[in-house]
Design a protein around this nucleic acid. Structure first.
Length: 290
DNA sequence: CAGAAGGCAAAGCATCCGTA
DNA sequence: TACGGATGCTTTGCCTTCTG
C-alpha cells in the first residue's frame, strides 16, 4: 500500500504561479474540511464562526480571525463547533513560490521545512504581536491573490514572504522526531485503505496488518494522530458519504446504507443520527429542494 | 536508560437480529 | 425506520519486553 495515494489530487495554482485561494462556507452540522494531505503548504483563516482543525497530531480550535499553518505533507481536517455554521479562507501554495532559484531562502527556509528539520508554529492568533501581524498580512494576501496582474502577483509573493518571515521568527527549532513521522506515514496508509474500502467491511485487524502494529497499539497511535478511534473515524467518513448520497440521489435509505459499508440499516440509522443529529429520512426531508 | 511497541484482561461499545 | 437485547469486537490501562 502506497501512502502517497492518499494525497489530494487537486492541482493548486499552476507551475508558473503555484498558489490557490479558496473561500468556503460550512452550514451547521456540515463538514468544514475532510481529512486529506498534500505536498503544498497551507494557511486556513476562519472568517466567521468557530471550527476545530486537526493538523498533524494536534487539534486547534479557531474563532473568527484566527488561523492555522499546515506544513507540507501534514494530514489536516476540520469540524465546525457549535450550532452556527462557519466560513474560512484557505491559501494553498507550493514551496517553489517562496524562491525562484537556489538561493539563501531555499537553503535556510524552504529546504529545512521540506526536509522536516524545522517546524513553524501551527496556530496563529492575534494574542501575540507576531500573530496579529500574520493575520493582518494574510487578510491582505487573500484580497490581492484573486487576480494575476503584475502588481497583485508581486504583492501576493511579497506578503507571503513577510508572513513566512514572521513564522520563522517564532520557529520551533529542532528536527521532527522520526518516530512521529513514521506514525503519521502509517496512519496515512490506514486512512487511504479506509477511504478506498469504506463500502466494504473494514476490520481493525486489516488496518493492523497494513501498518504492522498490534491492535491495541494501532488504536492508541490512530487516536494520537487523528483524535478519533479507528471505528469512530470510519463511521464518521461513512456518514459523510451517506449524507452526500442522500442529498444527491433518490436511492432508498437501505441502499445508501449498503453503499456506504453499513451492513445493517438499524445500525446505520443510529450512527447517522449520532453524527448528523437527525435520522437519514429527516436529513433527506431537510435537504430536499435545497 | 528512556521511549516505543507488544501482551493481556476488563470494560465499553459496535454490530447484528428480531420485532413492531 | 426505530428499538431492545445478545454477542463479540474495539478500546484502554497497566505491565513487560524490545531497541537504540
Amino acid at each position: 500500500m502506497n501512502p502517497m495515494s492518499l494525497k489530494e489530487n487537486r492541482v493548486h495554482g499552476r507551475p508558473m504561479y503555484p498558489i490557490s485561494v479558496y473561500h468556503m462556507e460550512c452550514a451547521p452540522g456540515g463538514t468544514v474540511l475532510e481529512c486529506h494531505w498534500h505536498s503544498e503548504f497551507e494557511f486556513i483563516l476562519v472568517t466567521k464562526g468557530r471550527a476545530v482543525f486537526q493538523v498533524g497530531t494536534g487539534s486547534f480550535e479557531l474563532t473568527e480571525g484566527e488561523a492555522v499553518f499546515v506544513h507540507s505533507g501534514e494530514i489536516h481536517a476540520g469540524d465546525p463547533v457549535g450550532e452556527a455554521g462557519c466560513s474560512y479562507s484557505a491559501v494553498v501554495f507550493g514551496a517553489e513560490l517562496l524562491t525562484g532559484s537556489m538561493d539563501l531562502v531555499q537553503e535556510k527556509c524552504v529546504d529545512p521545512l521540506l526536509q522536516r528539520v524545522c517546524r513553524l508554529p501551527v496556530k496563529i492568533t492575534g494574542a501575540a504581536e507576531w500573530g496579529a501581524e500574520v493575520i493582518r498580512l494574510l487578510g491582505r494576501m487573500l484580497e490581492s491573490s484573486a487576480e494575476e496582474t503584475a502588481s497583485q502577483v508581486l504583492a501576493t509573493k511579497g506578503l507571503l514572504l513577510l508572513i513566512m518571515a514572521q513564522l520563522f521568527s517564532q520557529g520551533e527549532a529542532g528536527e521532527v522526531p522520526k518516530a512521529a513521522l513514521w506514525k503519521t506515514e502509517q496512519i496515512k496508509t490506514a486512512l487511504h485503505y479506509i477511504h478506498e474500502h469504506y463500502q466494504r467491511t473494514i476490520r481493525l485487524k486489516d488496518l493492523c496488518l497494513l501498518t504492522n502494529m498490534s491492535e491495541g497499539h494501532f488504536c492508541r497511535v490512530f487516536r494520537s494522530v487523528m483524535q478519533y478511534s479507528p471505528i469512530d473515524y470510519i463511521n464518521k467518513y461513512r456518514t459523510q458519504q451517506a449524507a452526500k448520497l442522500l442529498e444527491r440521489t433518490d436511492k432508498k435509505i437501505a441502499a445508501v446504507a449498503m453503499d456506504t459499508g453499513f451492513e445493517n440499516i438499524s445500525y446505520f440509522t443510529s450512527v447517522f443520527k449520532t453524527h448528523m443529529g437527525v435520522t437519514p429520512s429527516q436529513f433527506r426531508k431537510g435537504t430536499a429542494g435545497a
